[in-house]
Measured scan of single mutants.
Amino acid sequence: MATKAVCVLKGDGPVQGIINFEQKESNGPVKVWGSIKGLTEGLHGFHVHEFGDNTAGCTSAGPHFNPLSRKHGGPKDEERHVGDLGNVTADKDGVADVSIEDSVISLSGDHCIIGRTLVVHEKADDLGKGGNEESTKTGNAGSRLACGVIGIAQ
């Protein structure tokens, strides 16, 4: 089992970053940390998408990683996509320092995120509470600013 993974985020604009993942036990939580720069100040949706395909930019990554066919939600919700990591918060300089621990994603097994795409979005994720159909699919997080395929790390 891989215990570490990394993702280099890039987009068409100024947004870029490096996100690290570490899972010490196969059924334990995954620590997610790193930094994203070039964002507007505020909240930005942060999700693992189904495919590791960036051939047409971030759009070819498909929908959120959702092997259990659930509705979109927040990272602490029972009803959520596996890939729903909530929001990252950018400061006035456009930098989001990421520090998350998640017990639904994994670096092995059915919820493995390796080979899938991590995406940072234009807007805040409403965590499935926006009151419309799009909220239950995407959290109304808007366009995909930057993305990268999650790969095994040393």
Score class of each variant (00 low, 15 high):
G109N: 13
H44I: 04
A56D: 08
I18R: 10
S69D: 10
T59M: 05
I150H: 00
S99P: 06
K31Q: 09
T59G: 06
V48M: 14
N140I: 05
G94V: 09
V88F: 07
V95W: 09
L85S: 01
T89F: 06
D110E: 09
S106D: 15
G115N: 02
E41P: 07
K123P: 00
G17Q: 01
A2H: 06
K92E: 10
V30M: 10
L39T: 11
N54Y: 07
D126R: 01
S26D: 15
A2P: 04
V32T: 07
T117Y: 01
G28M: 03
A124H: 13
I113V: 14
Q23P: 12
N132T: 11
D77K: 03
D91A: 10
D102E: 12
D125N: 03
D84N: 00
L9R: 01
K76I: 07
S135G: 05
V48L: 09
P75H: 07
T3C: 09
P75V: 09
C7I: 13
L127E: 14
L43R: 14
G83N: 01
V88L: 12
G52D: 00
G17V: 00
D91E: 12
G34I: 05
D126G: 01
V30K: 03
T136I: 11
V30S: 07
R144N: 00
G139W: 02
T138G: 09
N27D: 15
K92W: 09
V30Y: 03
N66T: 07
E78Y: 13
K129S: 10
I105C: 15
G74Q: 14
N20K: 14
S143H: 07
E41R: 10
K137Y: 07
G130D: 10
H111T: 13
V120H: 00
N54V: 12
C58L: 01
N20D: 13
K31P: 03
K31H: 04
G83A: 03
L9T: 15
I114S: 09
A5E: 03
I114D: 03
T40R: 12
H44A: 10
A96E: 08
E79D: 12
V82I: 12
K24A: 10
C58V: 02
G17S: 04
V82Q: 13
E78L: 13
D93P: 10
D84H: 02
G28V: 11
G139S: 00
R80P: 00
V82S: 10
V88C: 07
I114G: 04
G128F: 01
V95N: 15
N87R: 02
C58G: 01
K37A: 10
A5L: 13
F51A: 02
K92S: 13
I114E: 04
G131M: 14
G131A: 09
S103L: 08
T55K: 03
E134N: 04
N54L: 14
K76C: 13
K24E: 15
T138H: 06
P63I: 07
G115D: 01
G115Q: 01
D84A: 01
E50Q: 15
S26R: 13
N54F: 12
I100D: 11
G131K: 04
N87Q: 05
D110G: 11
R80Q: 04
D12S: 13
N140L: 09
E101C: 07
F65I: 03
D91P: 15
V15D: 13
G131T: 15
T138Y: 05
H44E: 01
K129T: 12
H81Y: 05
G86A: 08
N54W: 10
N27S: 15
E78H: 10
K4V: 11
E78D: 15
G130S: 09
V98C: 08
R80A: 06
G83H: 00
E122R: 09
H81C: 01
A2S: 14
D125L: 01
T3L: 10
K10T: 14
G109S: 07
D97K: 13
L145F: 04
E41F: 05
D93Y: 14
A56R: 10
I100L: 13
N20I: 06
A141V: 03
S60C: 03
I18W: 08
K10L: 14
L107Q: 03
C112M: 13
K4T: 07
R70P: 03
I36H: 00
E25H: 09
G74E: 15
C112P: 15
T3H: 08
R70G: 12
V119H: 00
G34Q: 00
D77I: 06
N132Y: 06
P67I: 15
G142N: 08
S35Q: 09
V15H: 08
T117G: 09
K24Q: 06
K129P: 01
G42S: 06
I18N: 09
K37C: 08
N132G: 13
G74M: 11
H44F: 09
T117M: 09
H81G: 01
G86C: 03
A56K: 05
G131Y: 07
C112F: 09
G42A: 06
G142W: 05
E79I: 08
H72C: 00
K10S: 14
K137A: 04
V82E: 08
G128Q: 03
T3G: 08
F21Y: 07
S26A: 10
I113C: 13
K137C: 08
G17E: 00
T136S: 07
S35W: 14
T55G: 04
I113K: 00
T138E: 02
A96K: 03
N54G: 13
P63R: 11
G62F: 00
G74K: 04
S135F: 03
T117N: 05
D84C: 03
F46I: 13
A5D: 03
G115K: 00
E22T: 08
H111A: 14
A124G: 14
G142F: 06
E78Q: 08
G73S: 06
G74W: 09
D97W: 10
S143F: 06
L68T: 11
T40K: 14
E22S: 10
I105F: 06
D93T: 10
G74R: 07
I114C: 10
I100T: 13
V15S: 11
I36P: 02
W33E: 12
D12K: 09
A5Y: 12
S103K: 06
S35Y: 11
F65N: 02
K4W: 04
G13C: 09
G115A: 06
P63C: 06
L145G: 05
I36Q: 02
F21E: 05
S143D: 05
C58S: 03
V6Y: 07
T138S: 07
K92I: 09
G148C: 05
F65H: 08
V82H: 06
E25I: 15
K24W: 15
D84R: 02
E133C: 09
E79G: 09
Q23N: 15
K123L: 11
N54S: 14
H72P: 01
L145M: 12
D110M: 08
E22P: 01
H44K: 09
S108Q: 15
